[in-house]
Amino acid sequence: MITLFKHEFKQNLKSLLIWSISVGTLGLMCVLLYQSMTEDMQALSDSFSNMGAFSDAFGMSTLGIGTLKGYFATEVGAVHGIGSGMFAAIMATSLLSKEEDGHTGEFLYSLPVSITKVVAVKIAACITGLILFSVITGIFYISGVAYLGENFETDLFLKYMISVLLMNIEIACICVAFSAFVKKNMIGAGLGIALLFYFSDLICRISPDLKDYIVYGPYSLANATEIFVGNEIAASAYIISAVLIIAAVVTAFVKYTRKDLAS
């Protein structure tokens, strides 16, 4: 199991480094731009907070972007939310299908290991990748904040990063279940799933009629402005998320262990 875990982790390592360094660098650049934008920030903050539903959707009505906390939640929150969701979806969408797409399944499954164990190891390696993604990008962001030398609530930052990790685990599990049904890598579909979740969360936040549906999407777990304001995420969001994760993982196991392996 350990050997296979290491093997699977190595397979994902290059992609993990590219994505985490890219998203981390983008986030770092956003943080470093904060001071150069400080002078214009107050006027911008006032304008942004008076844009009605859009201000609500991006949290700018409750958290002004004139402060580092508000700026971080709005700017880095968007970059990290979309970037990490896309990475989770891409990695998970090809997690199972890549063996058939690359014709390596016959080699892998000719080794003395059950398909159930392979699926378990792959999901474990995927989640480990997501944890490392959070750590690497977190180091980039916190380095930027440290460079600025401004006060920053690290407890809220940690809460935000853990919430995004949970969100990414949910996106990944849904995409792993999708991966069990296909025989080709469908990275485009994975990206589509991540973006669908992101924009459906946004739409639900813009439209007052759809607000009750926010909790159904993974992005409800990790809204940066709500976390940095200090609002608690609805308990129903966690319950729905847990149910979806369990359902997705069970689907992946049941489908993949019963399907015919493509040559």
């Binding site: 397979q11 690359g102 390596t104 016959e106 080699f107 000719s110 003395p112 290991v113 398909i115 164990k117």
Partner: peptide, 18 residues
């Protein structure tokens, strides 16, 4: 399957690896 594959050496026709 798992127990059996310890005692089987299989060579597929395509021989694809990572």
């Amino acid at each position: 399957h798992e127990k059996l594959m310890k005692n089987i050496g299989y060579m597929p026709s395509e021989a694809m690896f990572y």
